[in-house]
């Protein structure tokens, strides 16, 4: 190979190296708000939980940053960090699934699209799951389904409330039916958590769609959403294509879904932690008062009532 060829090859290689994908929040000193375009000092933006101080737009948060926002310092104990997908269908579309997985793992530093663990929120012990949209659109395959199911089972076992921050395009197609049945698997675990008399609060962030909407996202005792988050079962484009008509701008926003009756409260991110704490405290038994759910089934309530007369 001549030196000239070597240079030519080198140039070709550099040209073929894909550009680093632009991060939503650049590492630079200043960040431009996606919605209003105002320049914000990046440190301030992160200090403001990635909510634009000017227009209130909620920028996307990574799962790690979300955990920091919600969990008291030094109390986070991650669970099942070693679960990885092993491409059970040997799936290949325009690119092999195994390559995609590796790319996203490198890009995000995560093994899959959800982080789960136990921690304290304003001193209250909770089980927390946080989905990460940056990992294959937060899609749910075997690993996401398994980690969430294990988290729910752990919450039931420890008898603590459960919070899942949802952000997902839905089931992960690259794992076919194995992905679809994760919807049932997580719902099964939630049925047991619920039967144990425990509180579950999903937080729906932008976007929450498809198989995640149609399973654990909609099964909360109380459902919280972030302002303007897209919450949908079928995607807007799918509906527009079937109906051949344009849908109103606010269709499938958190505010729209709340009006339809499927979201309890829309909470700005800056108030999320305190709202969750408030709700969890409201579901705790009051000291000194006997909670009937804590009594054994055969407890003679009538006898007790008579005695107090």
């Amino acid at each position: 190979m001549s030196l000239f060829d070597w240079f030519a090859n080198r140039r070709k290689e550099t040209a073929l190296t894909p550009m680093q994908p632009e991060r939503e929040i650049a590492d630079g000193l200043w960040t431009k708000c996606e919605a209003c375009g105002v320049m914000i000092y990046s440190k301030d933006l992160h200090g403001h939980q990635l909510v634009c101080p000017e227009c209130g737009h909620h920028h996307r948060v990574s799962s790690s940053e979300r955990i920091q926002q919600l969990i008291d310092p030094h109390t986070w104990r991650p669970l099942d960090e070693n679960l990885v997908s092993c491409d059970p269908l040997q799936f290949k579309d325009r690119k092999p699934y195994s390559d995609r997985l590796r790319e996203y793992q490198e890009k995000t530093g995560l093994k899959d699209a959800v982080q789960t663990g136990l921690g304290q929120l304003e001193g209250l012990p909770i089980a927390l799951g946080v989905m990460d949209f940056a990992f294959m659109g937060g899609s749910m395959g075997s690993v996401v389904g398994e980690k969430i199911t294990r988290l729910i089972e752990r919450a039931t076992w420890e008898h603590i409330p459960l919070v899942i921050v949802c952000a997902s395009g839905g089931a992960r197609m690259q794992e076919g039916m194995l992905s679809l049945v994760q919807m049932a698997k997580t719902a099964a675990a939630l049925e047991r958590h619920r039967s144990a008399g425990l509180l579950y609060i999903p937080v729906l962030t932008h976007p929450t769609a498809g198989g995640v909407t149609a399973s654990f996202a909609m099964l909360g005792d109380i459902i919280i959403a972030e302002p303007k988050a897209t919450i949908a079962f079928a995607g807007r484009r799918v509906i527009e294509q079937t109906l051949r008509e344009k849908l109103p701008d606010d269709f499938q926003t958190a505010e729209f879904v709340q009006k339809c009756g499927f979201v309890d409260v829309i909470v700005p991110r800056t108030q999320l932690k305190s709202t969750l704490a408030q709700l969890i405290r409201l579901h705790q038994p009051v000291a000194g008062q006997v909670s009937s759910t804590l009594l054994p089934k055969s407890f003679p309530l009538m006898a007790m009532a008579e005695e107090s007369l």
Partner: peptide, 21 residues
């Protein structure tokens, strides 16, 4: 499942999720 405006309004996701549980 039907993907339409009314289906979304009446909670297609919730209806499916509820049955699963």
């Amino acid at each position: 499942a039907w993907a339409g405006v009314d289906a979304e309004k009446f909670g297609q996701g919730e209806a499916i999720a509820y049955n699963l549980r």
